[in-house]
C-alpha cells in the first residue's frame, strides 16, 4: 500500500500557545483521517498545516514520501481544501460560485443544474447565496466534491448545518472517493455514520 500523506513529529504554535506537539500519522490510499477535539484544540490549525497554508513549528509533512516544501506545486494540484469558511461569496449565485471554483480547478461542470438539483438546491441556482440558509450554502460549497478529480480532500467540518439525508449522501460520496484510492482528512463534531475501511482517528486535547 502506498503512503499518500504522512506527518512526522508535527508541532504547532498559535498565538504563543502550543496546540499540539509530536503528532505523527501515515495515510495510505483509501484511508480517512478523522480529527476530533474540542473547540480551540487546534483541529483547523492542523488542517491548515496539512493543506500547506502554514508551516509547522517543528516536524514535517510528506506527500508520497517527499516533503511538502520540496513539491508545493505538485501537492497543490492533488489537493482539494475546503476550510472553515465555505469559500462561497454571498453576493454571487450558486451557479456563479460553482463556475468560479470550476474555473480555478480547470474542470468543466457537465450539468451544473443537475448537480445542484441532486444536492437539493433545485430552483435556487440563480439567487444570490446570501438568501440561502447556512445548510444550503454549505451544499453549494460541497458541490465541488462532485466534479473535482483531486486525490486528497481536506475538509473542515463538512457536515455542519447539513440535514441527515444530505450527510448520508455525502458519506456515500466519501466512500466512492476512497474506493477510487483517494484520501480524506476531515474534522467533525459528530460521529461518522458510515462504515469506513481503515479509518484513523486523532483526538486533539485542549491544552494551555
Amino acid at each position: 500500500m502506498s503512503i499518500i500523506l504522512a506527518a512526522e513529529a508535527l508541532s504547532c504554535v498559535r498565538q504563543d500557545r502550543v496546540l499540539f506537539e509530536n503528532l505523527s500519522f501515515q495515510l495510505s490510499a483509501g484511508q480517512v483521517l478523522y480529527i476530533q477535539g474540542k473547540n480551540g484544540a487546534g483541529k483547523s490549525s492542523l488542517l491548515r498545516l496539512l493543506a500547506g497554508l502554514t508551516l509547522p513549528e517543528d516536524g514535517r509533512i510528506l506527500f508520497r514520501g517527499k516533503p511538502l516544501s520540496e513539491q508545493a506545486e505538485v501537492f497543490a494540484e492533488h489537493l482539494l481544501f475546503i476550510g472553515h469558511h465555505s469559500g462561497i461569496h454571498p453576493q454571487l449565485t450558486a451557479l456563479q460560485n460553482l463556475a468560479f471554483w470550476a474555473a480555478i480547478s480547470e474542470q468543466a461542470v457537465a450539468d451544473p443544474y443537475q448537480l445542484l438539483g441532486s444536492l437539493g438546491l433545485a430552483g435556487l441556482e440563480d439567487i444570490p447565496c446570501f438568501m440561502l440558509s447556512a445548510g444550503q450554502q454549505r451544499r453549494v460549497s460541497l458541490a465541488r466534491l462532485w466534479f473535482s478529480s483531486q486525490l486528497l480532500w481536506i475538509l473542515d467540518e463538512p457536515f455542519t448545518s447539513l440535514d441527515q439525508q444530505l450527510i448520508a449522501k455525502l458519506e456515500q460520496h466519501f466512500l466512492q472517493h476512497l474506493a477510487k484510492g483517494g484520501v480524506i482528512v476531515l474534522t467533525s463534531h459528530q460521529h461518522l455514520a458510515a462504515e469506513y475501511p481503515a479509518l484513523q482517528a486523532i483526538e486533539l486535547e485542549y491544552r494551555w
Binding site: 491548515r48 493543506a51 500547506g52 497554508l53 508545493a72 506545486e73 497543490a76 494540484e77 489537493l79 481544501f81 475546503i82 476550510g83 472553515h84 469558511h85 465555505s86 469559500g87 462561497i88 461569496h89 454571498p90 453576493q91 474555473a103 480555478i104 480547478s105 480547470e106
Partner: peptide, 22 residues
C-alpha cells in the same frame, strides 16, 4: 475583505494555481 472573510482567498492560496490569475 469579503473574499478573505468567506474563505475564498484561503482556498485559492491552498490551490496555488489560480492565485496569480485571480
Amino acid at each position: 475583505k469579503d473574499d478573505y472573510r468567506y474563505g475564498v482567498i484561503e482556498q485559492l492560496v491552498a490551490r496555488r494555481q489560480g492565485l496569480f490569475s485571480y
